[in-house]
Simulated assay, not measured.
Amino acid sequence: MPGRPAPSRRTVLRSAALTSVAGLGAAACSPGEDGAAPARPTAPVDLGADGEMAKGTTRLDRDHHVVVSRADDGSLKAFSTVCTHAGCPIRKLEGTKLVCPCHGSEFDARTGEVLHAPATVPLVELPVQVKQGRIVAGTGA
């Protein structure tokens, strides 16, 4: 604008840096991510020997972002442990409750259901079965 001094190089650089940092924060928590398909295992994940998982137990595989549980009737369920709120990997299992480290969302590891917001969408269920005595979950299971 005429009559207005040009911003200093320092002001321009500082503004650019703050805009970049703000953009990263917004991307991590942007609205509308609920319902977006979170990452899923792209190959079958071996979750251990079938005989080592008792009825009524839950097991978290932190490396592959999968949780598996065996109901009292012996059936298995598995879920992706990528939070449906902002895509953070969940690495904490307290009994049968999964706790997201990013914003505190909580999920039931046996059903994938949301127990505590900000997440509003359940965890993505994964196919799971026993193959050759091993519990296998994920795409292609």
Rank of each mutant, 00 (worst) to 15 (best):
L126C: 00
P7I: 04
S20M: 15
P101Y: 07
C29V: 15
V99C: 00
S80N: 07
R9I: 07
A39M: 11
A141W: 00
L13G: 01
T42D: 11
V114M: 06
D50G: 08
A27Q: 09
R70K: 10
G74A: 01
K131M: 09
D108V: 14
R62E: 05
K77A: 05
A27N: 10
S15A: 15
A37N: 13
G25P: 00
A119M: 05
S15W: 12
A86Q: 14
H65M: 11
P5T: 05
K77Y: 02
T42Y: 01
A26I: 13
A17Y: 11
D46R: 00
T120K: 09
V130N: 03
P31Y: 00
L98V: 02
L115K: 11
L47T: 03
A119Q: 04
H116W: 10
M53H: 12
V99Y: 01
M53V: 14
T11S: 14
S75R: 00
K92F: 12
K77F: 05
E94K: 08
T120E: 11
C102H: 04
P101W: 03
P31F: 01
K97V: 15
V136S: 00
T139W: 10
P89Y: 05
A17Q: 08
L47K: 02
T57K: 13
K55S: 11
T81G: 01
A26M: 12
C102A: 13
D108I: 13
K92Y: 12
G133T: 10
